[in-house]
Amino acid sequence: MIIIIGSGVIGLFTALRLLENGKKVKLIDSDEINGKATDASVGMLAPLIEAKPYEQELFDLMLDSKRIWDEFLKKKYFVNQTQLKKNSSLLVAVNKDDEERIYFKKNFFKKLGFETQILDPKRTLKIEPNLNSNINCSLLCEKHNQVEPMLLKNYLLKQIKNMGGEIIKVGRIEKFLFSNSKLKIHNLCFEAEKIIIACGVWSSNLLSKSISISFPTRPIKGVSMLFKTEKKLFTNNIWFRNIYIAPRNLNFLAVGATEDEKGFDDSISLDEIHFITKSLWEYLPEIEKLKFQNIFAGLRSGVIDGNPIIGNLKHNKNIICAFGHFRHGILLAPITAEIVCNYVFDLDLKKKFNFFSPKRFNL
């Protein structure tokens, strides 16, 4: 029996992968369906856009996971249930500073081995005619994907239950005891050959209180809003300097922004709402036609070196970490599940994945 603490997208993907490989799995969380960070995501799967200088290992990990997402595109049922689709990303410049940033990114992407296109205002508006006309240029990055996070979560939950996985609600988890293949949480005791810590931003605190191991992580809040329009406004994912827009089916638009560090407070402030709506007024001429549907906030787990923590602990190989993915949780979920499976089955791991092991912190 493998027990996963945490039922966000990382925990769900990992549970399903283990079930597919013949393991019995229990998911334990404070809520039956958790994953607020997943809910706050807009679901863009764009490793090139997320790439940063001096993060080659993380970029390679994103590409490995993107290849798995590309394989999912061949599975009709998965595509129908999650609205996974191919699309492109358009980085839009509305002033000279934005334009310089776009040319820097184009050169950076070329060094990574990827060709992108700079489009003048006329070509940009031909692709996306509902953008504001006062744009300087744009950068077109093709062959990206997009998925709807809540549909993805529901699909994974359904598949896990269909394959015999259990999801157990135990209330708020502050601490656990794990020894001799027994896991104790509150007054509940479970048989477990290995446990996987995949509760996102809460993972480090849980390990600290349970086994006195603490990782250098911090909570970073993300906020997104959902709108509905009378007609389809965009085809591509649109990236501005401070917000990003993901078109969804049935004329829905998901708009994401903000990376605030306010501790574990995930409440939504008027200032955050104002920031997103003010930015939309600046970029979209038809904003008055957007009908507000919902707003989401989630805490993402950021690690001091910017890389997720995936692997077993130095002093207890039966405790496996799978957290610290920051804003890349959905993108990296499939490859994280693959890596965790290697640890569960004690298989040889590709050397490049050792880079993300908790042992880099000597833990």
Rank of each mutant, 00 (worst) to 15 (best):
I5A: 11
I5S: 11
G6F: 11
L12D: 04
L12E: 10
F13T: 13
L18R: 08
I28P: 09
D29P: 14
I33D: 12
S41A: 12
L45A: 00
K52N: 11
W69G: 05
Q81E: 15
N87K: 09
A93P: 09
V94I: 15
D98C: 04
E99H: 12
E99R: 07
N107A: 15
F108P: 04
G113C: 01
F114Y: 15
I118L: 02
L119E: 01
K122S: 14
N132Y: 07
N134K: 12
S138C: 01
L139V: 03
L139C: 02
N145K: 06
E148F: 01
M150I: 14
N154I: 07
L156W: 06
I160Q: 01
K161N: 11
N162C: 10
G165M: 10
I167A: 05
K169Q: 15
G171I: 03
G171K: 03
R172T: 12
L177Y: 14
K184A: 02
N187Q: 12
N187M: 07
N187R: 10
C189Q: 13
E191C: 04
E193K: 08
I195R: 08
A198L: 09
V201L: 08
N205D: 12
L206W: 04
S208L: 05
I213C: 00
F215L: 10
P219E: 03
I220P: 13
V223A: 00
M225S: 07
L226R: 15
F227W: 10
K228A: 03
L233V: 11
T235K: 13
N237I: 10
I238H: 00
W239H: 13
W239Y: 15
F240W: 10
R241T: 13
N249W: 02
V255I: 12
G256D: 05
D266T: 10
S267C: 12
S267A: 11
S269C: 04
E272K: 09
S279H: 11
L284D: 04
E286V: 14
I287W: 13
F292T: 04
F296N: 12
G298L: 01
I304H: 05
I309N: 07
I309K: 09
K314F: 04
K317A: 06
I319Y: 02
I320D: 01
R327K: 14
L331V: 02
C341L: 15
V344L: 00
L347P: 09
F353L: 00
